[in-house]
Computed example of a mutant assay.
Amino acid sequence: MLLTALLACLAIGVVAGFLAGLLGVGGGLVIVPALLAMFHLVGIGDAHAQHLALGTSLATIVVTSISSLRAHHARGAVRWPLWRAITPGIVLGTFGGAQLAGIMSGPTLQWLFVVFAYTVATQMLAGRQPAAHRQLPGRATTSAWGAGIGVLSSWVGIGGGSLSVPFMTWHNVPVKEAIGTSAAIGLPIAAAGAIGYIVSGWGVAGLPEGSVGFIYLPALVGIALASFPLAKLGAAAAHRLPVPMLKRMFAGLLIVLATRMAWQLVSG
């Protein structure tokens, strides 16, 4: 059973790492439902499964984002001044959101994930981006946007790309730079979220062996081993592959995953 779980986590890491590098979004949106399925496979109870999936997802994104941001930085696609402006809000929002998530029920967090996944899928299928008709705001406003991105990212276990990329393109940042900067923003989101879920889950009864707070270490290791090299390949592929077509395919996958989770919630 442990071997099956490890192989499953390696497969999750392959898909999530490549998507994170390729699209600047998607890693956590795949990891969270995949982890829920893996937890059921190895007999981890439902009481804290969603919290564990969110915390573990954010912890794995620490690894993915390092690989992805290095690849995008090598291509000059990261706007570091923007990263420095948005990061304080990102850190505060993500850490605070993880503390709030710790007192929210699993079904509530799952419904938030379902709604968010459908929203992202709809936007990808429509192929619309916010009209780029304004410049980036000042540091304080940018940081405030970062706080909002961080809170929502912590509740759905993502690196924030599906929120930060539209924010940047709305403010006249070229798409490839928005994706590259989003990959860099994923690091403080993931780090603050992972620490937040460790704190909010510390001392909670009934967590499986191998957990540190709401992070399940065996899954973290398996996913990280595969996601690190694949994120680099995905970032390289982003400059060569037809990303709009791949986004539509990914949107279809999101709809399937969100529908499955919603059906399980409704059917009990």
Rank of each mutant, 00 (worst) to 15 (best):
L10Y: 06
G210F: 09
W155C: 00
M168W: 12
T4V: 09
I66N: 08
P166Y: 06
L54S: 01
G213I: 06
V221W: 01
G160N: 14
G45M: 03
T4Y: 07
W202A: 15
S153N: 11
A236N: 08
G186V: 10
P244S: 02
L217E: 06
A226S: 09
G102W: 07
V204E: 13
G96I: 04
M104A: 15
G76K: 15
G159V: 03
P244C: 06
L41N: 03
L92Q: 05
E209D: 11
L257G: 01
I158D: 10
L225V: 12
S164L: 12
G97P: 12
F113I: 00
L23S: 03
S200K: 06
P166S: 00
F39Q: 07
S227N: 09
M38Y: 06
L254Q: 02
P188Q: 11
L152D: 00
G96Q: 06
V212E: 02
I255S: 03
L152I: 08
L152K: 07
V165P: 13
A258N: 05
I103L: 10
M38E: 01
P137N: 15
I44H: 10
G17E: 01
L187S: 08
P242E: 15
A59P: 13
F214W: 00
A121S: 04
G27L: 04
L82F: 15
V173S: 00
L225S: 00
W170V: 07
W202R: 12
R260W: 04
T169A: 11
